[in-house]
């Protein structure tokens, strides 16, 4: 059992939790993830490690409440216990030797992008962070990002905060204006990552994307998380989650992501009933 040490709502649908998990905290690196099961009969759900404190033995997760499992997790309070919490899983994001990087985050993907930006910043890399949200109310981690970035660009779909528009616009402009990024790291919805890659491909700027397919075990045992990368089948949980964006088959990944849509809808409604909440 793993104790919830801190719980904080970052916005109405995104929650931060700090979990007591010393073994995970000891080894965690940016880019890696954990799998939790909130209750004994719960689903196994992957979440990226958004931060860790090796001394305190805690791991921070930031999650969007999208369905049954995340709804259940969000119903827990400080001092409650999560049934299972395993990690760190996957490979850490490669940061060695990077001098100038654009970190592009979309929505809750920013929770995953933030520790990467921070690590790059800490090793002396020049970081441009471009983050996008649907509107002002959904913006998360603004102060944290600013502190970890040499240049912070905030975009919203409706212009209610920062600039109006999508993240690819400022990215393309910076590249056109002569910024020479060693690498672009894009983390967010599949569709966003797909468009980032379409943009950077034109200028041949190496782009790493963080893939988040549906997973079960997270140890390479089930093959559920497989993707086509450069024509080969890869398992995101052990070979990734980071991959060379130019090689990823995004259309296939999007089709695979929707496989349990109907079931998820039902599960969400049931959990909401259980927790006496309205289904949004």
């Amino acid at each position: 059992m793993y104790k919830i040490v801190t719980k904080r709502a970052l916005n109405p649908t995104v929650t931060l939790m700090e979990i007591d998990a010393p073994l995970v905290a000891r080894k965690a690196e940016p880019g890696q993830f954990i799998i939790f099961r909130a209750t004994e009969d719960g689903e196994r759900v992957p979440l990226t490690i958004a931060g860790y404190d090796r001394e305190k033995g805690t791991v921070t997760i930031i999650f969007q409440i999208v369905g049954g499992a995340t709804e259940m997790l969000n119903s827990f309070e400080e001092g409650d216990y999560i049934h299972d919490f395993v990690g760190p899983l996957g490979k850490a994001t490669e940061t060695d030797g990077l001098k100038k990087v654009a970190v592009v985050g979309g929505g809750v993907g920013c929770a995953i992008a933030y520790p990467v930006a921070k690590k790059l910043h800490d090793i002396g890399c020049k970081v441009t962070s471009i983050v996008g949200f649907r509107n002002k109310d959904l913006v998360i981690l603004e102060d944290e990002f600013r502190a970890a970035s040499d240049n912070y660009i905030l975009m919203t779909d409706d212009g209610s905060a920062g600039e109006k528009g999508v993240v690819t616009a400022p990215l393309e402009k910076l590249i056109q204006d002569g910024e020479e990024f060693d690498e672009v790291i894009a983390i967010g919805p599949l569709i966003m990552m797909k468009f980032v890659v379409l943009t950077t491909k034109k200028y041949n700027v190496k782009t790493v994307v963080s893939m988040n397919p549906i997973m079960v075990d997270g140890t390479g045992m089930c093959g559920c998380c497989r993707l086509t990368v450069g024509g080969e089948t890869k398992f995101a949980c052990v070979d990734g989650p980071d991959f060379d964006g130019f090689l990823v088959d995004f259309d296939e990944a999007m089709a695979r992501g929707g496989i349990y849509k109907e079931f998820e809808k039902k599960a969400r409604e049931e959990t909401c009933n259980l927790l006496n909440k309205e289904v949004q």
Binding site: V216, M221, C222, G223, C224, R226, L227, T228, T233, E252, A255, R256, G258, I259
Partner: peptide, 10 residues
């Protein structure tokens, strides 16, 4: 990698 293809393990 179509939807509906599983490993037996999964």
């Amino acid at each position: 990698n179509l939807n509906g293809v599983y490993s037996a393990n999964e």
